[in-house]
């Protein structure tokens, strides 16, 4: 398998470095080496590696959902509206941002195909106000695709946030049963910083249903969840009856200590018939809301309020007019 990820702050039309990381243990046998792609510029439906790597990679990107701020060249006026999915001809302009699917495909030795996908926020380039209409949409390839949803707003992926992944194999083999049934209506259950996934290497043994999809014996092939540099997958999750994988990244003390903008890569890998793999990489930040304790906060608040007020009242106890 290989995976790819976008840097935390990606801007349309600007040079961005996308790291293609080919997991050595799997592919080293096939002769593919760990490589970094060079500069990749999103300038249309197809993106090309400006610097060749040892592995020829083919890229495809699309706007997942776009939230664009109206400017001079838009009729929408000030405000937000939703553009049509896959409108690749629209470049995100200044002040706007879009959630973007970036996908890549490599062919390893023996013609085995590996696919990688990542979802990231693409921000409008500063100073840009006109949409680039010269970009022509391209037909979407029938590659394997992960559809990622979450019942919570996707500020950015966070620990404790529940993600639903639907795997659509395209023309590459069996799909998860029921995977083409459209979006499932999942309960917006968020076990913030949910612990207890069925882990393979982690110490925590407590199982959590939403990280297991019903356990082994769930539908289809499992997804393995890796972290960057982890020698082995950390979790194995199975699709539920509706064919959708559910996963809640547990809290990461390292992320918690590091800062709000620090992130780690979580890589979801699905094996393909024929030996290939498809991966989805998420840049996961620490949870923004999970560690908020309202009772404690109110306690300190009221303590300060009553303490301050009490001091003032006590100070004027002698004054009676």
């Amino acid at each position: 398998m290989f995976w790819l990820a976008a840097p935390p702050l990606s801007r349309a039309g600007e040079a961005s470095i996308y790291i293609l990381d080919l997991a050595p243990p799997e592919l080293a046998k096939s002769g593919l080496a760990r490589a970094e792609a060079g500069l990749v510029v999103l300038a249309g439906g197809r993106a090309a590696a400006a610097k060749a790597s040892d592995v020829a990679a083919e890229f495809f990107w699309s706007l997942r959902t776009a939230y664009l701020r109206g400017g001079d060249d838009h009729d929408a006026g000030v405000g937000y509206y939703q553009a049509a999915s896959g409108a690749a001809g629209t470049v995100v302009t200044a002040g706007g941002y879009s959630s973007v699917d970036l996908r890549a495909r490599v062919v390893a030795g023996g013609g085995v195909e590996h696919f990688a996908q990542t979802v990231f926020n693409l921000y409008g380039r500063e100073g840009s106000s006109a949409a680039d209409d010269s970009l022509a949409p391209v037909p979407a390839p029938a590659w394997p695709l992960f559809e990622l949803t979450s019942p919570e707003p996707l500020y950015w992926p966070q620990t404790g946030q529940t993600f639903f992944l639907k795997f659509i194999p395209g023309d590459r083999g069996d799909r998860t049963v029921g995977a083409d049934d459209g979006a499932s209506d999942h309960d917006a259950v968020s076990d913030h910083d949910g612990a207890g996934a069925k882990t393979i290497v982690a110490d925590n043994d407590a199982p959590a249903d939403n990280n297991n999809g019903g356990g082994p014996g769930g539908r289809g092939l499992p997804l393995t969840v890796w972290e960057e540099d982890s020698p082995a997958p950390l979790f194995e999750i199975w699709a539920g009856a509706d064919g959708v994988y559910a996963f809640t990244p547990p809290a990461d003390p390292g992320l918690d200590a590091a800062g709000a903008t620090s992130a780690k890569k979580l890589i979801f890998v699905r094996a393909l018939p024929g030996g290939g793999t498809a991966s989805l990489t998420l840049l996961v930040h620490r949870s923004r809301e999970a560690r908020r304790d309202l009772p404690l906060g109110l306690g300190v608040f009221f303590l300060a309020m009553l303490g301050g007020g009490g001091l003032i009242v006590a100070g004027r106890r002698g004054a009676r007019y």
Binding site: S287, R292, D293, L294, L296, G297, L298, V300, F301
Partner: peptide, 8 residues
């Protein structure tokens, strides 16, 4: 939500 202690 901002009347909370943030235990991160």
């Amino acid at each position: 939500k901002y009347l909370t202690l943030e235990l991160t």
